[in-house]
């Protein structure tokens, strides 16, 4: 049985259907990329898994337990954590308080002192900035806080929604390296990205979403060589 399994879900915003009969699965220890253009339903898929927009039909199972009817806080408690698009930091709180809030769930709260040290180890810039308000940081630093805050929740599976959005190429490369390190330390990662090249190159497998449906899936290497992906997403 898969670690995370999404079975035939359909998701609506009001009357507008955004995701159509979508299925995917993620195995423990994998890095899986979900790629696609604007409006393909990538963020909606993550919001649906996180419990913010429950699917109208279909099932989502995490470690074999159905979670598609659970509220967001219960899903986080199980260890399925999302780093939302656009960072969504608590702007008027210090970097350190942002991180501590990340460890709100009861599993993470018990070990938060240790986790924060590990996060500072991985992202040393955050220690330098810990007493600054989050809104005073640069975009790249804010993304690091967002990732660090996600790690504070002690995720078994971390979902990142466009972590490279709006960052300079060098910073974005940095972020991808950090994501790979997180995966190497044993966290399963689902990466939603528009930067197809970088995200596939650090992933084991990938899914391609178009208009709310999966149109392709497979090992990341094969997807990178695929002619459709080359023309549609890589522009080669």
């Amino acid at each position: 049985m898969a670690f995370l399994e999404v079975r035939n879900i359909e998701v609506f915003y009001g009357d507008v259907q955004v995701i159509f009969d979508l299925s995917l699965h993620v195995e423990e220890g994998e890095v899986v990329s979900i790629i696609g253009g604007n409006g393909a339903g990538k963020s909606t898929l993550l919001r649906s898994i996180s419990g913010l927009v429950p699917p109208a039909k279909g099932e989502i199972l995490f470690e074999g337990v159905p979670i598609h009817k659970a509220p967001p806080e219960a899903i986080v408690e199980r260890g399925l954590v999302q780093v939302p698009e656009g960072r969504r930091l608590f702007t008027l709180m210090s970097v350190k308080d942002n991180l501590i809030v990340g460890a709100y769930n009861s599993r993470a709260d018990r070990v938060k002192e240790k986790t924060i040290e590990a996060v500072y180890e991985l992202l040393p810039r955050l220690r330098e900035r810990e007493s600054q308000l989050a809104m005073t940081l640069s975009g790249g630093e804010q993304q690091m806080v967002a990732i660090g805050r996600g790690l504070m929740a002690k995720p078994k599976l971390l979902m990142l929604d466009e972590p490279s959005l709006g960052l300079a190429p060098l910073l974005s490369k940095n972020i991808f390296e950090t994501v790979r390190k997180i995966a190497d330390q044993g966290t399963t990662v689902v990466l939603v990205e528009q930067d197809v090249m970088h995200s596939l190159s650090i992933s084991e497998r990938g899914y391609v979403l178009e208009q709310g449906r999966t149109v392709m899936e497979g090992p990341a290497k094969e997807l990178l060589d695929d002619p459709h992906i080359k023309t549609a997403y890589l522009g080669i």
Binding site: S50, G51, L52, P71, P72, E73, V76, E77, V81, Q82, P84, R88, L89, F90, T91, L92, M93, D97, V101, G102, Y104, N105, A108, R149, A153
Partner: peptide, 14 residues
Amino acid sequence: RATSLDRESASLMG
């Protein structure tokens, strides 16, 4: 405080 700043983001923190 987190909830007062961003409700949805706070939900994602559990």
